[in-house]
Nucleic acid binder design. Structure first.
Lengths: 170, 170
DNA sequence: AAATGTTATCTTGAATTCAAGTTAATCATG
DNA sequence: CATGATTAACTTGAATTCAAGATAACATTT
């Protein structure tokens, strides 16, 4: 009886629905609401550290995708927007900004004249390496609020859900 | 040896980091990456059903917040943008759109002349009631891909994480 | 090789959001 | 009640994103 009263923002939403629509089983809103809310709050926390390095979240994401691809840290725009789950138009804009900041360079592909490959510049690489350390430390700090066993269990369940969501149909 | 090869998008990211930066413990990226990705995919699935009712995700969110507040389905803009985690400027814009569509009406507050209360119109109420049923059915369908026990476990872990994230500091 | 279809990227215009600043009303304190 | 601080809502301008369409290069088939 020590967890009945306080609750979080999602508990209050569920209570409201129980009062207003007791005929509906809104229990899925509990999981899905908490998941969305966690994602929103997490993204705020991560952005805070990215900003310390003069980066926005999406800037870090693009640079990190190039970095982890391995030398020569080079990918085609299509590979980038596919893994980052954004449209081609969004990627065009992102690359323009990153290029103007000197963190990426572009060069024509030998394989395909339609494609201009994107490569991390020296500055971009160095900046990402620094930001990456801060980012990983931040993620460790955030998760340290939970017992390691809970984090493991959370990841297992999320992997199940992600597999279901990545499967066509459902 | 049946789960080593396939993996999901996040597994591939973790493998890349392990190859490129074996010195870093990037395990938090597993949980946090999957969480973000689940949230993005979930939001796409939910939007698909909202669209069947001519609604966008944020439109449903605002109408639902008013609906579950209970009769007379009326809240101040400040209450709305606080629970929906958006800025006041965003809410001004949202309310203008919803008003132009006839789903909300506005009236001056008796209590506070600065505040113009927002109330669901008859149309807005009826639309939300219909969309709500489709939305809840959709959420049930999505989660039915997982054993009930997994969903329960997932929610428990997410509640822990959410509590940590809602706590000031960390 | 010519025709057809596909792919990679970019362009355009609109939608959504936020940060910062504005205005007006309310509250608190002397 | 006067002053200053706070609050509620809105305005403005910029950033980010997407959908839809355009363009050019590639692939396949005849």
């Amino acid at each position: 009886m020590s967890d009945a009263l306080p609750g979080d923002a999602v508990d209050r939403i569920l209570e409201q629905w129980a009062r207003e629509r007791p005929d509906l089983d809104v229990s899925p809103m509990g999981v899905i609401g908490r998941l969305s809310r966690c994602a929103a709050l997490l993204s705020q926390r991560l952005d805070g550290v990215f900003a310390e390095y003069g980066l926005s979240g999406w800037e870090f994401d693009v640079l990190a995708t190039l970095r982890r691809a391995g030398a020569p840290y080079q990918l085609a725009p299509t590979e980038l927007f596919s893994s980052l789950m954004v449209t081609s138009g969004t990627m065009t804009h992102r690359l323009k900004v990153l290029e103007s900041k000197g963190w990426i360079v572009r060069e024509a592909s030998n394989q395909d004249a339609r494609s201009t490959l994107v490569r991390l510049s020296g500055d971009g690489f160095a900046l990402l390496e620094r930001a990456l350390e801060g980012h990983v430390a931040n993620e460790h700090a955030i998760l340290s609020a939970l017992p390691a066993r809970s984090v493991d269990a959370l990841e297992k369940r999320l992997a199940e859900l992600l597999a279901a969501l990545e499967t066509p149909r459902g």
